[in-house]
Design a protein around this nucleic acid. Sequence first.
DNA 1: ATTATCTTGTGCGTAATACGAACAAATGCT
DNA 2: AGCATTTGTTCGTATTACGCACAAGATAAT
Lengths: 258, 258
Amino acid sequence: MTKVQASEDKDYVQSLVRGLEVIRTFSRYKPRMTLTEVAQQTGMTRAAARRFLLTLVREEYAETDGKYFALRPKVLDLGFAYLSSLPMWEVAQPVMRDVVNALQESCSLAVLDGLDIVYVARVPTERVMTIGLSIGSRLPAYCSSMGRTLLAGLPPAELAAYYDRVKVERRTERTVANMVALKDAIEASRRQGWTLVDQELEMGLRSIAVPVRNRRAEVLAALNVSTHEGRTSIEAMKTRFLPVLLDAAQRISAALPQ
Amino acid sequence: MTKVQASEDKDYVQSLVRGLEVIRTFSRYKPRMTLTEVAQQTGMTRAAARRFLLTLVREEYAETDGKYFALRPKVLDLGFAYLSSLPMWEVAQPVMRDVVNALQESCSLAVLDGLDIVYVARVPTERVMTIGLSIGSRLPAYCSSMGRTLLAGLPPAELAAYYDRVKVERRTERTVANMVALKDAIEASRRQGWTLVDQELEMGLRSIAVPVRNRRAEVLAALNVSTHEGRTSIEAMKTRFLPVLLDAAQRISAALPQ
DNA sequence: ATTATCTTGTGCGTAATACGAACAAATGCT
DNA sequence: AGCATTTGTTCGTATTACGCACAAGATAAT
């Protein structure tokens, strides 16, 4: 039986999807592009790409100097609509600053999205990872402390679906890269209610995470602290960082709107 | 002469614009909505709103429980496309953390967008403002230190256009709320190359900002440090904070890609 | 349990949107 | 100057998206 394509679905607005694809085409490596470049990157005809770009310019989501197009800050409003709709978002930030004040290490909040975690709040101290992290950044869930925490909080069917889709690969020589070991690690996270990941995502990076739950004990987000392996021992993370994180997660949960 | 409506423009894709309006409808106060609520909020027919919502769900920008719709983290990718395309974004963050380490106060980076400033990076310490601030947050430009810094960096014609559009109003009893005084303040910012705003946006809030320039000396963004009036005197901001900020802005400028 | 009200799902005819090809115009390179 | 590449524009039309009307489902009131 032929699978119905999205565009054959009578309730699908493909002009919206195509326009969003144009926005997503811009990146660190392509901060500004010509009309022809956008068409090439998106696989659209030049005429179509042109209409989307001019529409984005007209609505102030993008700008042009007559040749090159670039996104404008109004695009952030779209993401901000999501952030501000998160129940824990407003209350998490002061709690996270308290964590940073107490431990002098970066603190982050993330949610699960597909195979990734997505950062929704962050109070950075000294840089720990090679790449800069910010709201909106994505990392693979299988080898990050917040990722494993969030996976551990999934209902069994969703976790099984995740295992079916994920392709684990070594990011460092310490990465857990076989499914049996990964499942064991996530089960351990579930049982002990926190997750410590040591240099699996990047050498030198050590982080510990706990779940943030709602009143029905569902896992909404993960909260972590990350440090450099030279600065903090695993034992210190368990004895000093974990109690602060558990308390912080509890405070966030308690402050959630009804 | 009748003004041409956007939708009469042959190069305008109104389905994209309408779909983006659906995304923007979600907020802190409406984190989840029914189909009928979205239609009411956006002024669309129910059928149209339904198609946009189902399309967003299909593309994983939104989710539904069968009745209520909510945005998903994928929406952050749209804003992230903008953030990651900013030339100073990657290099600014470690510099801002150095500022926070040196001064123990929140440090932010913002750009101008219309009448507002929009936060594009932030390293918060203790909460200074009543509302939580984050990447994507907007504040009026006329009564914020980063706003006046960015306005001061505008070409004369753009600044004149801003003056034509802005409606200044008191946010506190200290807010500069007449155009002559505002223009003087911005001209002073331009001349001295930094801006200090004391309790004009909110009582208790004191902040100082400097411009971040590119190699052609154009102002790309503003960098600030904010504190509480009870914690730091104006004199201390000038003698202790300003040199650190000027140095930081210089380091960001120096690290910009060619 | 029944009825009323409100919300959502769906089909369908069609208005109008968005399409893409083709050609003109502009720009950039040699 | 000539050529290559990119962009702007027009236009016929394919197809998309529309909105109305009615059916179906859910919820609230009695």
